[in-house]
């Protein structure tokens, strides 16, 4: 099942073609991944543990490279020469916000990326304020990150990458460890953003809620690509890739807010 990619613009946000990669210890994680994400799309990347999801994500901003194939972000190839620009365009939100928020205060943390890119003074201030306002954390700018709740830290983590005005936002397990209210707040924030989103998740209802399209990464290749609801309803496919819906959840009967 290869659905037509709904491209809303001429240059897709992300183009991965034939990407293969083996770690130095010989373990091969990716075996030729092809994936295109159009501008403004929200795509869920599903797959069992060990499918190569994290390896793929680390290729998107050039932390891992050296295998076969290519990655392009908004037409720009990911390679050593334009690494700085690529890292500005691809905003990765890691799973543990404590890893991501390494500066002493929320404000400095959000400012880190833009400041590393050369922004200073009032312009930097404005950029930080805007990113914090987008996630509803403007009131917490001067707090140290470890005094925030987990949900708040996750939102600040999103702000740290939004401040760099990325072309594509990559979220690694955005809903993990969140209480239902924080989960919904984050969903509202993600929906309100005008940015391409690639969301790596095991949380299938969350994928259905936020992403029209899903891709399944299994065994180091894209095994399926299609509308999220169709994928979730295909029981055989789900079983084949160790994907399971939560008890009592029926994707057919859920109205998805758009």
């Amino acid at each position: 099942m290869t659905s037509a990619v709904p491209c809303t613009s001429a240059v897709p946000s992300l183009e991965v073609s034939g990407l293969a990669f083996a770690y130095p210890d010989g373990h091969q994680a990716l075996f030729g991944v092809d994936l295109t994400v159009g501008r403004g799309e929200r795509v869920a990347l599903l797959g069992p543990n060990g499918a190569g999801k994290t390896t793929l994500v680390l290729h998107l901003n050039g932390i891992l490279d050296g295998g076969a194939g290519s990655v392009r972000v908004a037409g720009l190839p990911v390679d050593k020469r334009n690494l700085a620009e690529i890292r500005r365009r691809v905003g990765i939100v890691f799973q543990d916000p404590d890893d991501q928020l390494f500066m002493p205060t929320v404000r400095e943390d959000v400012a880190f990326g833009p400041a590393a890119a050369g922004l200073r003074g009032a312009e930097l201030e404005r950029c930080v304020d805007k990113a914090l306002a987008q996630v509803g954390m403007a009131a917490f700018a001067d707090r140290p990150p470890h005094h925030l709740s987990f949900g708040q830290r996750r939102r600040v983590a999103v702000a740290t990458v939004l401040a760099m005005e990325p072309e594509i936002l990559v979220l690694d397990e955005p809903s993990s460890n969140l209480d239902p209210a924080s989960r919904r707040e984050l969903a509202d924030i993600l929906r309100s953003l005008d940015v391409t989103v690639l969301m790596v998740t095991h949380d299938l209802p969350y994928a259905l809620e936020l992403c029209e399209r899903s891709v399944v990464l299994s065994g180091g290749v894209i095994a399926e690509d299609g509308p999220t609801r169709e994928l979730l309803c295909d029981e055989e496919l789900m079983r084949a890739h160790r994907l399971e819906l939560p008890f009592g959840f029926d994707p057919r009967s859920v109205a998805v807010p758009r």
Binding site: Y23, P24, D25, I63, L64, G66
Partner: peptide, 9 residues
């Protein structure tokens, strides 16, 4: 230590 540095990550 030099060769050990070649491992990625």
């Amino acid at each position: 230590a030099a060769p050990a540095g070649t491992e990625a990550l």
